[in-house]
């Protein structure tokens, strides 16, 4: 972003990578897949790179409002400094925080989740899919992430993206408004679960496996981690894969 600003350019979108997208080895692949799609399509975009900081979502949800606002205000200063208008992110937590919680602190942007952006690219014919590739005709189930679904009522965009791959979308019993959390929201990602008789991600993975799907599609870095761990817990990693939507699209495009 700094580079483009120095050259007097203003990109169409700011791609908000998020901490998982920047540091988590597995989710870096999602970031790269999404960037490949953007490059292929020729979308003018920028990232903040080292100027990006955590949105503060887990701090706020763990109760540390000071820390949340410190992060938020610093991010807003950076984004307002670059006159950012439109933000796209692959993380529903970042999406929710920037979209719904930054306005109260002076950060007003058009914020969309990458599932919505991918759906737009497909609808506009900018992303042309070959019809499934390795997913063609296979059963795929989509796990609703809470911060995309219930929190922001985005249920159809990710499903439209999956359907565009010419696959058989199978739903879990608890889906859309009734979708079961993967267990990582509300800052649970950063601590061990409280005592109980089961881990939430195992409960959810069992439900996903019961659909007989060959792959579990997700649109969230935390869900990706939790579902991947769940599949490992059930010792099914050899035949059930967990993918982010952007990875599935990039694979189909052969990039």
């Amino acid at each position: 972003m700094a580079e483009m600003a120095a050259n007097g350019e203003s990109p169409e979108i700011l791609f908000w990578v998020g901490c998982a997208g920047s540091f988590d080895d597995r989710y870096k692949a999602v970031t790269q897949a999404f960037v490949k799609i953007l490059n292929k399509v020729g979308v003018s975009f920028a990232v903040l790179g080292p100027e990006e900081a955590c949105t503060g979502d887990p701090a706020r949800r763990a109760g540390n409002e000071f820390l949340f606002q410190m992060q938020a205000v610093a991010n807003i200063q950076v984004m307002n400094g670059y006159e950012v208008k439109k933000v796209v992110t692959a993380c529903p937590h970042c999406f929710n925080t920037i979209k719904n919680e930054y306005p109260a602190l002076g950060g007003n942007y058009e914020v969309i989740h990458h599932s919505q952006f991918l759906q737009q690219l497909i609808n506009e014919g900018k992303v042309v899919l070959k019809g499934g590739g390795e997913f063609k005709g296979k059963k795929i189930t989509f796990h609703d992430s809470c911060y995309l679904g219930r929190a922001n009522n985005v249920y159809e965009a990710p499903r439209e993206v999956i359907k565009a791959l010419d696959v058989e979308l199978v739903e879990m019993k608890r889906c859309r408004t009734k979708g079961l959390c993967c267990g990582a929201g509300g800052a649970q990602m950063f601590k061990e679960p409280e005592p109980g008789n089961k881990d939430i991600n195992v409960e959810r993975t069992e439900e996903a496996l019961a659909t007989g799907a060959a792959a579990i599609a997700v649109g969230c870095p935390f869900c990706l981690t939790m579902m991947t761990d769940g599949v490992k817990n059930k010792e099914r990693e050899h035949d059930v894969k967990v993918y982010d939507l952007a990875e599935m699209i990039a694979k189909d495009m052969g990039i």
Partner: peptide, 22 residues
């Protein structure tokens, strides 16, 4: 996690300068 966020602006302990490594 709070401490990581205060010092390296991420809930995980990574150097902020590594954000662009991908």
């Amino acid at each position: 996690m709070f401490q990581n966020m205060e010092t390296s602006f991420s809930p995980w302990k990574f150097a902020p300068t590594d954000r662009f490594n991908w």
